[in-house]
Design a protein around this nucleic acid. Structure first.
Lengths: 205, 205
DNA sequence: CCACTTATTAGACGCTTGCCTTATAAGCAT
DNA sequence: ATGCTTATAAGGCAAGCGTCTAATAAGTGG
């Protein structure tokens, strides 16, 4: 049996949905700061300011928390990217530009989140469940990109559309990595500029 | 004091240079198979078929082994990429193509190595020493790419050269990620094909 | 105001890791 | 051969992790 409690530290209740969100947020932060190795269940709980036992109360295990975090992150990013571009539906070129800006915004490429994506990508290779989430997310993101591109006025088809989409998507990912590795060398504005240039060059010339 | 040894398992000596290479190879394999979390010092030694004490004999600590592995991997890849393209110096377009082929070859994007890069990228963000290696490697790789591109005959300068290089480099990284995430969806030949298309579109039209 | 649910904490256990230290034997020089 | 160097193995140790279990308190419904 456990020892009688010696002291009662402040213990405030929160609704399950809030606590889960807390843990998910802490997970992203830990992943970004400490990488895959440092983001342990206990460390996540420490960051969230709860005892390590609480993780098991809300999630099956730390891995499961990671997976759920990944799913939610993808969902959030996708909806927000869409929300960023859609208001400019009347001006396809501007919509695409806003999309680029959103991709490199602090919300999705900021210092306390960008590192998490890399960990998830890594997990997507060795773990089937993560691979599934990654695949689904990729398809939807590419669909969104395609929707934006096909609306561009005066589009040339010197390049097959599928190739163009694949290449623009690759440019996005590649620049994202470049930004990830050194935001000094390729700052955010430069990334967006290059994306715009790529879109013009691939589809409009 | 330690117990007297009960049995003498086969214990063959190897020259330091060979053993170090063994450990480096095992490290890459572990990183690719198990990710950052699974590539522990002990696991690497297990994979290399040596006792866990040997790691300390050749390297300061597991982290140091990782760093050295990263350095050597970069060095090897760079020299081999150069070696792949240079024989075709007379035909710049072909040289560039061979470069693309080499990037997506089994040697550098095969299943037992591709996962390691992702781990190193992840480390490059949280650890200064890895960041330095990454930065140096990036510069040199981009230089090589630039050397190949500037030789292309009939190059247009509708796009500033620096932009073109940055974009082609991004395409390479992005397609590499795409291949990494699902070689099913974007097989190797398709990646090379898209690289060729990007080079034409960016520099020759 | 009491009882019941459950969010939350804290401790215990077994395991693995990294580090260090000691013991052994393999190969080379003499 | 014999002895010295050192590559190699293996054990011990503290720390950290994931899992499980028991105890405690915070709300909530009666």
């Amino acid at each position: 049996m456990a020892k009688p409690a010696t002291k009662a530290p402040p213990r405030r209740r929160a609704s399950p949905v809030v606590r889960r969100a807390d843990l998910v947020t802490a997970t992203v932060s830990c992943l970004a700061r400490l990488g895959a190795k440092g983001a342990t269940g206990r460390e996540i709980c420490r960051q969230a300011g709860v005892s390590h036992g609480l993780l098991r109360h809300y999630f099956q295990n730390p891995d499961n928390l990671l997976l759920e975090t990944y799913e939610q992150l993808c969902e959030d990013m996708l909806t927000q990217l869409e929300a960023a571009a859609m208001p400019y539906a009347a001006n396809p070129q501007e919509a695409l530009h806003k999309y680029f800006v959103a991709v490199f915004s602090d919300d999705w490429a900021g210092p306390d989140i960008i590192g998490a994506w890399m960990v998830f990508w890594q997990l997507a290779r060795s773990r089937m469940d993560f691979a599934v989430v990654s695949a689904r997310f990729n398809v939807r993101q590419r669909d969104l990109l395609e929707r934006l591109v096909t609306r561009l006025p005066g589009r040339t088809d010197a390049l097959p559309l599928a190739d163009g989409i694949a290449l623009l998507s690759a440019v996005l990912d590649g620049l994202w990595i470049e930004y990830y590795l050194s935001e000094q060398r390729t700052p955010r504005e430069r990334c967006v500029e290059l994306c715009d240039a790529a879109a013009r060059r691939l589809f409009l010339s």
